[in-house]
């Protein structure tokens, strides 16, 4: 009797364990799948997973091991390695570190924002004034290469963080100041102005950009839309920026010979 008791006990224990785990396992899988679906929505909501990003995230083993400390690793790479590469003017190295940080934390807008700025401005300006390159054409080409790299970072950042106004605004600034592409600048400034927390003055930038692009019709439409959005009380209140809008609309109505009955300010 005594000799069979431990075996019976062991069997009973094994059966109990198997029953608990057998009941729990399918339930666990279903629950985890549901949590996973919710998290995919929270992480990538409203964005398109680019092929590049999907490829990078395929390095699941490394990322998995780093999980839990992934953000700290990304921060350290950014503030230490990117800064050192920037100070040493090692632009390709800096670019790959920026890429690594954005892969580790695609939903941290600051990496995209500062990373894009580092490439499109710092690397590009340094390439334009590279004393080791006597050929001016090559310097211009190299400079443009880094502007495009920075632009790519900004655009991928926007794909991953579409509600972060600063990325839209900085892309607009890049189009405006480095690429002199005022139409695209207007588009990005417009998007920035529509997002939460964006400074109000971005509302006026698209119209200014259309004027710089020489597209008076689009500029007039933008100024007019801005003016018509104001409530009567807002229009009454004297403010410096509203006077600018009024003056621009009046000037363009004259320039475009808008018929009096269609003008915002007929007098």
């Amino acid at each position: 009797m005594n000799a069979t008791l431990p075996l019976r006990q062991r069997l009973r224990r094994a059966l109990l364990l198997a029953a608990i785990l057998g009941l729990w396992a399918p339930f666990k899988i279903l629950w985890e799948q549901e949590i996973g679906r919710e998290q995919d929505f929270l992480r990538y909501h409203g964005t398109v997973m680019t092929r590049q990003l999907r490829d990078d995230l395929g390095q699941g083993l490394t990322i998995g091991v780093l999980s839990g400390m992934r953000n700290v690793v990304a921060d350290l790479i950014f503030v230490v390695n990117v800064t050192i590469a920037w100070e040493n003017e090692e632009w390709f190295r800096m670019g790959s570190y920026i890429n690594l940080c954005t892969v580790l934390q695609p939903r941290a807008p600051v990496f995209w924002d500062v990373g894009g700025w580092q490439l499109a401005w710092n690397a590009s300006v340094a390439a334009a004034h590279d004393p080791r390159q006597p050929n001016e054409l090559r310097r211009i080409k190299a400079s443009r290469f880094w502007v495009d790299k920075g632009l790519d970072v900004y655009k991928r950042g926007i794909e991953n963080n579409p509600n972060y106004w600063r990325l839209w605004a900085d892309t607009g600034l890049l189009y405006q100041q480095r690429l002199k592409d005022y139409r695209n600048a207007a588009y990005y400034y417009q998007k920035a102005s529509e997002l939460p927390n964006a400074p109000v003055f971005y509302e006026r930038f698209p119209a200014i950009m259309y004027e710089d692009a020489g597209d008076d019709q689009a500029a007039y439409a933008a100024w007019k839309a801005l003016w018509l959005r104001l409530t009567p009380e807002q229009k009454e209140k004297k403010e410096h920026w509203k006077e600018k809008i009024k003056a621009s609309i009046r000037r363009l109505e004259q320039k475009l010979s808008i018929p009096k009955e269609k003008r915002v300010f007929p007098n």
Partner: peptide
Amino acid sequence: DMNSFTIVDE
């Protein structure tokens, strides 16, 4: 699934 807790990063 410990990875689901990395939602904290978000």
